[in-house]
């Protein structure tokens, strides 16, 4: 790991030096600071070495919360709802449009648990069980913002503006 990243992590560890849940706060910030929005193994090793929190415990935490990513993420993240309401309103069509038009890497076997990123790391595609916004179906989340009544055309325009 380069000294710059190490220094950054040192600072983050220092900020979260006390209290319950300090590990969560730490990891959240380290992921946010990472240019690819994920937690590389060497960063986690560094946290373990510096905090004496056991390696396996850290791995247990980062694999428990779906919020944490262990593989590099695209610059932009699109989450498609695959709940019942969104499905009947055509979320599958949106999903297939993205699949067809972008070159994703990763295991693409389960629509309900999709987690793919394009080769150029521009775009990450995930599926979500439900956003709780069924009245707006189909719902798509793009970089943290929720979009209702999504259509393939609209999505295409948004992506073009990225």
């Amino acid at each position: 790991m380069n000294p710059k990243t190490a220094g950054k992590i040192d600072g983050i560890i220092k900020k979260h030096s006390e209290g319950h849940g300090r590990l969560l706060g730490m990891l959240e910030e380290i992921q946010r600071e990472n240019p690819h929005n994920y937690l590389p193994a060497d960063s986690l090793e560094y946290v373990a070495r510096k905090t004496s929190i056991p390696y396996a415990k850290i791995y247990g935490v980062v694999t428990f919360y779906s919020f944490f990513n262990l593989i590099p993420q695209g610059e932009h993240c699109i989450s498609i709802c695959r709940g019942t309401a969104c499905h009947t309103k055509g979320s599958k069509k949106i999903l297939d449009f993205l699949r067809k038009n972008y070159e994703f890497e990763g295991e693409d076997t389960n629509d309900a648990k999709l987690f793919l990123t394009t080769k150029d790391r521009k775009l990450t595609l995930r599926s979500v069980a439900c956003f709780g916004q069924c009245a707006l179906a189909p719902v798509v989340e793009i970089d943290g913002d929720i979009y209702g009544n999504m259509k393939v055309e609209t999505l295409k325009k948004i992506i073009e503006k990225f």
Partner: peptide, 25 residues
């Protein structure tokens, strides 16, 4: 503390850091 439960639900399993295995832990 070489092992912990990693993953959730159907994916849960007892393992080492990044599933590297006991021999590498």
């Amino acid at each position: 503390d070489a092992i912990e439960i990693a993953g959730r639900g159907m994916d849960a399993h007892v393992t080492t850091f990044f599933d590297r295995g006991l021999g590498n832990s």
